Amino acid sequence: MNKPTYKSYDELPLTLSALNVAAVLGISRAGASASWSTAKAGFPTLNIGSRILIPKYKFLAWIDGSSSKKG
């Protein structure tokens, strides 16, 4: 499966899968899945059955919070 491409955050779906997160962050799908399974990354996940998703608004808040800490 090809990685989706996004030109803006507005194009993101309401819930993001590992594939969506990988596309936004420029990392592999496996890297995205591994990152949110560790507490260090701090991804705000939502578990629906066996699926792990990230609500779009929480992911964007996480990005804003992470980037403001760096600089």
Rank of each mutant, 00 (worst) to 15 (best):
W62I: 11
A61W: 06
V21D: 08
I48A: 00
L25N: 06
K40A: 15
G31L: 15
K7V: 15
S66W: 10
K69D: 12
D64A: 15
K70G: 08
R51D: 00
V24E: 01
F59Q: 01
G49W: 03
M1A: 11
P55S: 04
K40D: 13
P55D: 04
P55R: 08
I27K: 07
S17H: 02
G71N: 04
P13V: 03
K70N: 08
S37D: 10
T15D: 09
G26W: 06
P13E: 06
D10S: 15
D10A: 06
K3G: 14
E11W: 07
A30M: 05
S17G: 03
N47G: 10
K56Q: 15
S28Q: 12
A22N: 01
W62Y: 14
K58R: 12
P44G: 14
A23Y: 02
G26F: 14
G71F: 07
P44A: 12
W36Y: 14
I48W: 01
F59C: 04
A30K: 09
R51T: 05
Y57L: 00
T15R: 07
L19G: 07
G65V: 09
L25R: 15
P4D: 11
I48G: 03
S33A: 15
K40E: 12
A30D: 08
S28N: 07
F59N: 04
G31E: 12
A61V: 02
Y9V: 15
L12S: 13
P44W: 08
F43Q: 00
I63E: 15
L16G: 14
I52H: 11
L46N: 05
G71R: 15
R29P: 00
L46G: 04
S28K: 10
G49A: 03
E11P: 02
E11D: 15
A39E: 12
L60E: 07
S8I: 13
E11S: 02
I27L: 06
P44V: 09
I48S: 00
K58M: 09
P44M: 05
S28R: 11
T5Q: 15
P4C: 04
V21E: 13
I54T: 10
P13A: 10
N2W: 12
